[in-house]
Amino acid sequence: MSVQTITKVQELMHTTRVEDVMATNVIIIEPSQTVADVKILMRDKHISGAPVMDKGKIVGMITMTDILRAMEEGRLHEPVSQSMTLRVKTVLKDSVVAEVANILGLKGSSRLPVVDRDGGLVGIVTTGTLTRYLLRQLDKSLQKNESEKLHTYRASHIFQDIISDDTSLVLRFVVDDKDFSNAGKASSLIKRALQRLVVNPQIVRRVAVAVYEAEMNLVIHTDVGGEILVDIRKDKLSVSAVDHGPGIEDLKQVLQPGFSTAPQWIRDMGFGAGMGLANIKRVSDMMKLISEPGGGTRLDMVFNLVSPD
């Protein structure tokens, strides 16, 4: 947990830009305002420092420390320009947070004005804004992780929690034909379901490949789409891809690796090489193809979830 969190912080530091972290409602002080006025302003606005600007240019920075010193030295009713810190470091809005963290870590720099390429002030970044941003992001990433863990925990207990002589979980997906951009959605959901059921990752991968090939076949070759049915048991997973499309003339021929009837536009997209059924056969423990012209097609695949030994 601690190792992972540190990595996440490091990643955030190097991928987040200052403009995503900074506060944009910057309170600006004019050089002619008195230290006393600024003191009241800071108290009311709950800030501990602000840039001093003259004609759109940053000329200094006034902080709580500067104000305390001014009070000690009796300059409370003089302009802030007499008491402000003159050398102000700025940071570009598109620099990464890691750079800022380095400067903010130095003594006396707990806030940095953020500027664009033309030097115009666009925001301010402080140790506070930075910390709040990082904590918020960490919390988000933790919640995401935790919620996936919870899904996995709940799903993985289904075969222990639900008692019967033979429990099975059936998933049903409708696949539209020629909907190329959505093709694979069912496979994606099946893969996630198996991961949540804590099926061995090697087997998940084999199932994903087989189901995806079958889903692409429904999209490419049927004119009506079809259905994918997944039957999950404790020891066995059966998948059927069923359609009421044109059916297959010569079953022997379609099982030849390299044989394909896919149109050119499908081939241009990297599919239809005649390897689909060969791939399915290879990754599954059992494959059966039933079809006749005009009578639709049914492809059954079985995967053993427990090794035979």
């Binding site: 951009s181 694979g184 893969k191 991968r205 994903a208 490949v209 995806y212 599919f271």
Partner: peptide
């Protein structure tokens, strides 16, 4: 095309 990403996911 998006199927390249899908394929990557499955593999």
């Amino acid at each position: 095309n998006p199927q390249v990403v899908r394929t990557a996911e499955m593999a």
